[in-house]
Design a protein around this nucleic acid. Structure first.
Lengths: 327, 327
DNA sequence: TCTCCTTATGAAATCGTATTCACATGTTAA
DNA sequence: TTAACATGTGAATACGATTTCATAAGGAGA
């Protein structure tokens, strides 16, 4: 069933049928005739043909490092909800934390498959940055600050700053930190800087070996706590870059026979279901992941529609105190 | 840059360039000439035009109830990995557990957008079943048994059967069950039947109020345990349909001043990060979610390629014993 | 020498739409 | 009455590939 057949049935030209679906510049009489035929046949214009002709796909490409993650899942929820509401579908690229695959998606999405790309990156290397700037389709970086382009991100720096201050307010002064790689801007760099600056602001210069870099997993947290406590037996607080890390740290602390929060207080980040339900429940930072997804899509829409989009959007957070710091 | 321009540059016809990219039926001489031009220009055929002409999209539609879920995230990981390896992209539809949106995706994916649909459904109503059978694109149901069509699913029935037997072997005989709605085939029906049959096989006819239906969440588990223990104070084991439910049940039990596993043993299902890390760690059932995604894609490929696909694939499981049943 | 087959190739049709352009009305202003 | 303009419509073309069909050259077999 194609437009020309509909046209013939309705006694008009194909152009008129096209107008019926698009700008609607036609007489009531013809409109009605076409409406009847369309209704009777259940005709729908071919998306392929429309895309070929108009170069508009009503599709957004979404690149994520992984999809089996609490926080990323929530961001994608926000993206998909908003996109659907606005009549866009999303095509998903899971890079498995592999930078070269992120690049591959970036270029393959650019073969006319999408109107825009929302990119949840981890480490944005020079190579990726180059591909981003060469992308024909507009790119919005979601989840971290990106100087050279559009982005929507959480205020991880101040969040971690506040968290560290909170720990100090709990009366602890021998504070360890377990975080991710510095190159990972959001999870690594920003959080660690926030921690350090908060310490310094309280007159404490954290020794290098009070801050360890680890995998952001339960196992990483376990190993990180081990390193911290071996180096400094006096540690009475551990700030972790993620909830999972905090869980691992707590495990190690308990294995030593020490107690949380009595001996050592621990904080996480992300407000995951894990943090809420483990014993002791973990003081954590809540980010608005769904909103991050939503804002990214909305920024993308402004770009696509040629409106004033703004370079970036910084999202807020809130600190949720739980048992792991309640002394 | 279009194929005819490449053709002109290489001194051949567009048809020949097309052959270069497809069946390759051409002389070494021309092949080389075209190769040079393609290399120099970086030309790539337009996907839109190819789709319009061939009706092949190399795209799979994936419909999920939600994406911010541990198990679904893992299934989608399996799907996306396998699809990418085979040269397919995936377009994602998140239904937010809304049956009518599942139907919408089913029809909208059928407007020539995809070569096949992988459907992670919850409750397959008659209406959905109708839409599935009317779908032009082949549909594979992923995650539950589906009589009328292709499916890949976990053996939830036997898994739960084994779990219930395990509880009995622990010496407990007053067993409660907290599950989901029966219409939800996998999470509700199969698991509950497995539980019941295991009880019956041991000569125990479970009273109706030893089995409660709840939301499969922490809160649901809490409420479910409350109902169970109010009705039967003698309960000494609770089998839960999911890990989250088990977490909630444990919370309630502890609030009562009872202990897990000493007074009441508890089991979950899904082997989530939560089950592994909570105290006490929860005896759970491990399913192979990534594999479920992978098998679904592979079955889809067989269907698309017209090979013998098989009606369904049943996946295995394993029971992981942890503290919550170690007496 | 004639036929038949294989190997290469190009011209043209096709996929299904949107859009430009030209044209035919009818209406209004001068 | 004429010029100017708004309104509606269809023919033709472009989007960028694939595929069918026709044809040409060259070799093999009779």
């Amino acid at each position: 069933m194609k437009i020309s057949e509909i046209a013939k049935m309705a006694g008009v030209s194909a152009a008129t049928v096209s107008r019926y679906f698009n700008n609607g510049y036609l007489s009531e009489e013809k409109r009605e005739a076409i409406r009847r035929v369309v209704e009777a046949t259940g005709y729908e214009p071919s998306l392929q043909a429309q895309m070929l002709r108009t170069k508009v796909t009503h599709t957004l490409g979404v690149i994520v490092p992984k999809i089996d993650s609490d926080s990323i899942g929530r961001v994608v929820t926000g993206i998909s909800e908003t996109a659907e509401k606005l009549g866009y579908r999303i095509i998903l690229g899971v890079s498995q934390m592999d930078e070269s695959r992120e690049g591959d998606f970036l270029v393959s999405f650019n073969k006319g498959m999408v109107d825009g790309i929302i990119f949840l990156a981890t480490v944005i290397t020079d190579d990726l940055s180059k591909k981003i700037s060469e992308s024909e389709a507009p790119v919005v970086i979601c989840g971290q600050y990106y100087e050279q382009g559009h982005c929507v991100y959480h205020d991880e720096y101040h969040a971690m700053y506040d968290m560290a201050r909170h720990v100090l307010r709990c009366g602890r002064n021998k504070v360890g930190y377990i975080g991710g790689k510095i190159e990972d801007k959001a999870y690594g760099g920003d959080r660690q800087r926030g921690f350090e600056d908060a310490m310094v602001s309280a007159g404490i210069i954290p020794e290098a070996d009070r801050m360890v870099v680890e995998q952001l997993s339960v196992e990483g947290g376990y190993a990180g706590a081990e390193m911290l406590l071996r180096a400094h037996g006096d540690t009475n607080a551990i700030v972790c870059a993620t909830d999972r890390t905090a869980v691992g740290a707590i495990k190690y602390i308990r294995n030593l026979g020490l107690r949380v929060p009595t001996d050592i207080i621990v904080t996480g980040q992300g407000d995951s279901i894990l943090a809420r339900n483990i014993t002791p429940s973990i003081t954590s930072l809540q980010y608005y992941y769904e909103e991050c997804g939503r804002e990214s899509v909305e920024m993308m829409m402004r770009i696509i529609n040629g409106e004033e989009a703004g370079k970036n959007v910084k999202l807020s957070y809130s600190l949720i105190e739980r048992e792991s710091t309640r002394v």
